[in-house]
Amino acid sequence: MTVGELVRELGLEVLVAGDLEADVHGGYCADLLSEVLAHAAKGDIWITHQKHLNVVAVAKLKEIGAVVLVRGLRPPQEVTDRARAEGVTILVSPTSAFETAGRIHRALFP
């Protein structure tokens, strides 16, 4: 499944479109940046409450498929600007981290 297909299936909001054709095989949920650096895999969907500039750097360094902000959280514009410059996809989910992860898991592993 691609990031774009996941967006359509779950009705996620696309704040910044990086590579929506990228393949997604899994995801990682964490708000601790070192956890993501240690354990997320390339192409993962990163589900988080963090919405500051360093998120863009971590996503870029880990080649994250898309960052999904939960509970409708919206980052400041400098973050979306930087994400656009770096080609990092940022999505917004209206539901909690638990529900968002559940829905993404179901879509990836039906």
Binding site: L32, L33, S34, E35, L37, A38, T48, Q50, H52, N54
Partner: peptide
Amino acid sequence: ELGFGSGLGIPNMEQ
């Protein structure tokens, strides 16, 4: 609150 301070930075550097 910004997601730092897990105490895993230097271990990540070693890893």
